[in-house]
Design a protein around this nucleic acid. Sequence first.
DNA 1: TTGAAAGCGCTAACAC
DNA 2: GTGTTAGCGCTTTCAA
Lengths: 354, 354
Amino acid sequence: MAEKMTIYDIAREAGVAPSTVSRVLTGHSNVSAKTREKVQAIIDRRHFTPNLAAQALEQNKQRTKTIGVIMPEVTDHYSGKILCAATREARRLGYETLLFQLPIGEKYDIGEIVDQLIRRRLDGALYSGGVLEVVRADLPGALNRLMEYMPLVAISPPIAGINCTFLHNDLETTIYHAVQHLYMLGHRRTAFIGGARTMRDSGARACGYLRAVRELGLTDIPSYHGEGGFTAESGEIAVLRLFSETSAGHRPSAILAFSDLVALGALKQLHVMGLQVPEDVAIIGCDNTFFSAYTLPPLTTIDLYSEERARTAVNELINCSKESTPKPPFTLVRAPAFIVRESCGVMLGRRENL
Amino acid sequence: MAEKMTIYDIAREAGVAPSTVSRVLTGHSNVSAKTREKVQAIIDRRHFTPNLAAQALEQNKQRTKTIGVIMPEVTDHYSGKILCAATREARRLGYETLLFQLPIGEKYDIGEIVDQLIRRRLDGALYSGGVLEVVRADLPGALNRLMEYMPLVAISPPIAGINCTFLHNDLETTIYHAVQHLYMLGHRRTAFIGGARTMRDSGARACGYLRAVRELGLTDIPSYHGEGGFTAESGEIAVLRLFSETSAGHRPSAILAFSDLVALGALKQLHVMGLQVPEDVAIIGCDNTFFSAYTLPPLTTIDLYSEERARTAVNELINCSKESTPKPPFTLVRAPAFIVRESCGVMLGRRENL
DNA sequence: TTGAAAGCGCTAACAC
DNA sequence: GTGTTAGCGCTTTCAA
């Protein structure tokens, strides 16, 4: 395939020792300006790029210049945004990202994935699973083992049993505010659709929703938080069930969707059923994805600032990897932004007869 | 951070030579069942994972088990699907993917990116830039250099000056058919929106559109293929211009959008202007993304089978990397699927008075 | 300031 | 079968 060039080839051509070439490459030790120039000229002319594997072999220094990104498959825009921002930030700092996808709808061994990360001696790992993964019992063990080899930052609410840095959105409170927002517009029958069944007690969204229902004294019917899923299709189905399971007086006047994607499906189904949004049913999504402003009507939603978190995570990771002594982990909580558009019906004002 | 384990540690504990541990690890040479078991037990117990960098250093054999993926930032669903499928397929075959994003809306040096790939001695590279990148004059040089170091497969129409394997959708013909489809429904004034300005002559979509306009004798006004872009917003703007630049009798009765995303924006703007789709204006998108079936009305679009291409590409790459002699490159052309939903107005039948 | 040489962790000839 | 040993390409003491 290709004749591999080494520092020896460069050294020979420049008439210097390999170590001198190495010094020019790393820029660490002192080399006379003249030699440096001469060697650099040959490196440039030959398009020589040092073998990273060889450099990485050196002891004590993690220098693979690679950050592992562990996240669910990038089929949704939320993960895409994080991956994109993380890769961009990493590149800006001279690093690349190695993507470890957690297959959706297929079982996998998180331990095996962690082995891969370790095997590659990465400089750090970014975990972004969020609520989706909370349920896995084997996650803490695997991530803790990973942490013995490299710094780990999670873009996720804190996970019990894992002692890494967490970049966390206080979604619970924001969801609470969203329900409260609907409450103030007059809604007393607000349903929550989407999400994982197993997540109902643990997920931040569900927590916020359930707390609001309790504290605001809203109608609490099992159907109002019964059905799960993460796709547009699951949004369709959820709405279908929601309106077929409930009797006339108990139909929800507002819907809180797990994500904008779920809301998208819900919107479609409501349209099919001839219900107007927000006049008949108000709806609020979550994620502020690229299509949120383009639905009919434009979706009121929550912006998680995922790009910003991704950048913070990468920076933190790279800083940690340079420290000799591990930095203590911390949890950073930030409030997401509640973005009011038209689907929640603010322009309709407070209504009494819902 | 962590006490790194080596095969020597395992060897010592097992009371065998390091090479025996290596043999167990690779499974290449013969080891007695008894020793193999003993060694394996220790490897398992200690969770030992061999350093990939060291393995990769070996010449001729055992590469990095990593495929580089070069593509625009994964902000759209098209790239996301390719990345996702490629990573999944790679993993299935024991490989990981290293993502090299081409920043959107920011200048970058493709040569530098290629250097990174080479430096990392990857087993292969998947390039998926498509029409977006055709314009760059430095691309062929960079990719050709890359090909001296590793096999390259491009999910893209063939690019002049690059002699790699191309997995190509005959989008041109499909777009032609789409325009023809509109023609048969009665449309004579079909506009094309989105895409890059520089792409107008080279891009497959534009080619197909222009050929259809010519061959079918459709109305050809500069405004009908004037404005570009790849975002939903650019779709909005394009429609706005399209309808403000043309006089009453010259308003298009149909719109072909560069992508579903562009179509999404167009849909929004048409709605704002009080135009009905497909009654007043028919519209066809491209990509068959997850939201295509959820727009109002559901979008008629084109499915590029990107996941399938991604899997093919990865397989081809891995096969090539195992060959000692390079396989001759080829170009595989596949017809995309034309997916008819409601936005093109088929259910309205053929109309004469458009 | 530069060169020689000893590894880094692993694999693969080559002995035994 | 299993151990010994020489690299893979690079960095980094340690001399000179």
